[in-house]
Design a protein around this nucleic acid. Structure first.
Lengths: 343, 343
DNA sequence: TTTTTAAACTAAAACGATTTAGTATATTAG
DNA sequence: CTAATATACTAAATCGTTTTAGTTTAAAAA
């Protein structure tokens, strides 16, 4: 069996002995406005239902310039944080008849740019972007071209855009306070060597809290591209065991993972001597021994807000919304790893 | 600044005082075949490069019937196993100028069908599907229509299709043997209540090994939709603590997660009394206390094979390949959790 | 010299929708 | 009774490509 020949507006028109124009008006709900008689509307609708006609999206897109596709670009779609949000975005988009192209930029500018270029040729309707450090100009260009763009997780200072994220500084400040309140005094902060806002602000929060309490700053910044994963772990190992620390605060989930591996591989029992806290929650932190305290980002809410905003921008009537910044609440989840240790 | 007017084949033709046909031939590499002079080719190419012209994919797709989009449909794109494969698929597809639409069917037939219908209207070029239990007919229909389809992870007995996966029975058999060899005799198997091949075969492997060694079968089958997550854990809890077991073998990653939570929430110390083994590896199993032995599926290889096969099917010359089954090797990763416990 | 063949290009249809600018008829207003 | 307006529809252009079926000119063959 070969493909049955597809139905088309033209075909329908011929069958009903009317013009394609009429069919199109009816299908697009413009019948009333265009003074099509009720009887005619009825006839078209009935036939369309009978043959289960579905318009060809490509033709539609070509003519209207709208592809009904949005892009969700993140650092790494396989990262639990992003994957969870993606899952939610997917549902919300499909509900509204939008499809989502997911892609990973690896936090690299070249990849981000290549991807954006690729999508432009495909006339994607909107972008949700977790931007790599150096694509401010490219984002600006998109906005200039009047294409809906929402940044999330991180943004560019000085560039007004739609944004969905959290108050990283405040969350980090509170998290550090939590450690301090639980009696930790020599708190090491392990983060990425980047100036991107999300990380910069987490560091700010840490510095603010330690400063306020007269504690010394102990920061390890790791290059994103620090050679192989092994050398990254070496750095962490040295920091943890050579510095004089009583607590370690990781700024993001994959650093935490590396950190926990370092403990496991070197001296598993030593982890109980430290306060451990991480940004980004994960189911496994509830299972780890000890259970790991975490700052949870509101993933579901982020996804909802992102899509709610995007859908507004995709509507003609609300597309010229002034840049909207949506800052959501984080949650500190204290678990065993931040209970004061009795050395 | 508004959108600069886009370039087009027609525009290029006018500028160069030639016909769009010529431009198109040159752009599509048919110049030689169509006897376009070298000089002309040169002229077109130069101008195209100068204005950085990129063809409109939508128009191209409409005309050729090829969208350069493939679908990757899985149970849940946020599940680590699927997300990792998705990440790899993404890279391989983009390399070949294909985009990927990721989507989750939640292992539900209705959702699978709705999604497939949706994509048909969009003339997607090919499908990689992790099918829900009851969509054999729908898959058959796709194949009848001559659309490239590859199933993975699970398949439909009696329906010849392209397939990429592992030998679940063998992997499960070896895993069970591993437990037996390590001295465990009362091995509980926790799985999903489904007849889908991947799970059915894992059970077969378990049954074969226990039978061969004269051990009794201890199986807990959980409904996929077993109410809330809590009631799922209740079932597991009862099974673990009420049955007389010395080892537990989980058939898939999220059951393992629930199981580990049950231990953690009820009597964390008791986990050391049991042998624990899981299908599907995860970074966190290396960090867990004790570290959890796992059967790792070759995620990277699966992704590569899937895309390699898909790209073949997308080429006219190789599209009529007879159904190809690619069965990949799994790896048993023994860790602390399956060392014999000294009760 | 006439006929064939090859080389180098092109006009126009097609993909499947949407939309602008009509037309023809019926109704209402003046 | 004519002019204006409303109703109910439609022809044809358009979106940006690809491709079929030519056409024109020059070179080769007969």
């Amino acid at each position: 069996m070969k493909k049955a020949k597809k139905h088309s507006v033209k075909g329908i028109a011929e069958k009903l002995n009317i013009s394609p124009t009429t069919v199109s008006f009816v299908l697009n709900g413009k019948a009333k406005e265009k003074k099509i008689s009720d009887e005619m509307i009825e006839r078209v609708l009935a036939y369309v239902k009978e043959i289960n006609y579905k318009p060809n999206q490509l033709a539609q897109s070509l003519r209207t310039g709208k592809s009904k596709i949005i892009v969700f670009m993140v650092e790494d779609i396989s990262n639990h944080f992003f994957a969870s949000i993606a899952r939610k975005i997917e549902d919300l988009a499909y509900e509204q008849d939008y499809k989502v192209l997911f892609c990973s930029n690896e936090n690299k500018d070249k990849k981000s740019r290549d991807l954006i270029q690729l999508f432009k040729d495909r006339q994607v309707d909107g972008y949700i972007i977790n931007p790599s450090p150096g694509i401010k100009k490219d984002i600006e260009a998109l906005i200039q071209e009047d294409i809906p763009v929402i940044l999330f997780d991180r943004y560019f200072p000085g560039l007004k855009t739609h944004f969905v994220g959290i108050d990283n500084e405040e969350a980090s400040y509170k998290a550090t306070l939590h450690l301090i309140e639980n009696g930790f005094k020599k708190i090491g902060f392990i983060t990425l060597a980047t100036t991107q806002t999300q990380m910069a602000n987490r560091k700010k929060g840490y510095l603010k809290a330690t400063k306020e309490h007269g504690l010394s700053e102990r920061v390890l910044e790791i290059e994103f591209e620090a050679g192989n994963p092994q050398s990254k772990k070496e750095l962490i190992k040295e920091f943890i065991f050579k510095e004089d620390l009583d607590a370690i605060y990781f700024s993001t989930n994959y650093l935490t993972q590396s950190g926990l591996e370092v403990f496991k591989e070197n001296s598993p029992e030593l982890i109980d001597k430290f306060g451990i806290l991480t940004f980004d929650d994960h189911e496994f932190f509830k299972i780890h021994t000890p259970t790991i305290s975490a700052i949870a980002q509101p993933k579901d809410a982020m996804a909802s807000e992102l899509m709610k905003l995007m859908l507004m921008l995709l509507k003609k009537s609300t597309k010229d919304l002034p840049p909207k910044e949506i800052i959501l609440k984080t949650e500190l989840l204290p678990r065993q790893s931040t209970l004061l240790k009795n050395h």
